[in-house]
Amino acid sequence: MSKFLPFFTDRDVPYTVAARPDTGLYSAKLGIWLFLASEVMLFGGLFSAYIFLRLGAEPGYWPKGLLNVPVGTLNTAVLIGSSVTVVFAWASLKMREFMKYRFYMAITILCGIFFLCVKLTYEWPAKFDHFGVFIKQSSAAKYEEFLGNDFLKEKNEEPRWEVTGHILRAPKGSPYGAVAEHNAEHFSHGAGHGLHLPGGEGDYVIQLDAINAKPNSEDNLRPAFWPRPLSSKTAVIRAEDVESASTFVPRHSTYFATYFLITGLHGLHVLGGLVVFLYLWLPFKGGATLYKSNPEHLANRVEIAGLFWHFVDLVWIFVFPIFYLL
C-alpha cells in the first residue's frame, strides 16, 4: 500500500494481527464493529424517518405495489448468496486454500456487481419514466372512474388519490413535456392509435397502469407478485385538479424520497464493499499478495471486509420488505 500512497507510513502498533489477550480481539475487529454500531444508528435514523413519515402520511398518500417484486426477490437472493460466498472465502483462507479463496471472492464480487447493475440499469430507470399525479381531494370525484374510491370505501380500504402510468401529454410549461412526447410516439406506434392524443394544452394525458384502468376490480385490490402490464387506456386530467405531479423520482412523494435515499445509500455501501473486495482479490501488497508473507493478516482483512458486507446484506433484509412488500 505504501508503494501507491507514499504519505502513508506504517507504524508498529501492537495487536494489529494477533489478539490482545484480555479482550481476545485484534484492533481492527473492534474498529469494524464500532463502525457497524455507528452504521446501525445511521440506518436507524433513516428507518425511524421512514416510520415517522409513513405513520404521518394521510390515508392514500403512501403508495403500494409500485416496485418490481420478482426483481427485488432475485436481488435479495443474490445478496444473500454473496454473503455466504464471502464467508467461504474467509474460511478458505483460514484453511490455507488460496485458490478457493480467489474463487469464492470472485463470486462475491460478481454478485455485488450484478446487484448494482440490476439496481442502476433496470430498477431505477424503470421508475424514472413512470409517472403519477396526485389529484386534489376536492376534485377527486371528477376522476372516480380512475380512482375507484367508492369501491375502496365499500371494501373498507384506504382511498386512492393518485393516477399513475406513462405520461403522454404534459401541460404547457411542465418539465415533463419531453418525456411525454417521447412516450406518446412510442404509444402511438405500439398501440396502433392515431397520432392524435386526447386533451389540450392544460391537461395531463396518462396511459394508465392496470390499477387505475380498472380501479373497481377485486383483482387489483392487492398488489400482485408479477407486475401488471400497462393498459392501453388513457386518462385526461386537468392541471388545476392536480395537487402534485412527478415521475417516480425522489420528489414524487415521501415514499419515493425514502426509497431512493435508503437504497441509494445502501448502493453506495455495496460499492464501497466491492472496492475493498477488489483490493483484497487483486495482487496488491496489502491484498492477495499478503497471503505469501502473512496469510493470517489477509484472513483478518477478509473477515473485517466480510463483516461489513454482512451488515450491508442485513440492511437489505429490512429494506426489501418495507419498500417492496409492505
Binding site: F43, G45, P250, T254, T258
Partner: peptide
C-alpha cells in the same frame, strides 16, 4: 449520536437539491 444527524443531513440535502419532502 452523530449518525442520525448525518442521516438527517442527507435528507435535508435531498430536500434542497432533489426537491424531496422529508
Amino acid at each position: 449520536a452523530f449518525p442520525p444527524l448525518e442521516a438527517a443531513g442527507f435528507m435535508q440535502l435531498t430536500d434542497r437539491v432533489l426537491g424531496t419532502c422529508f
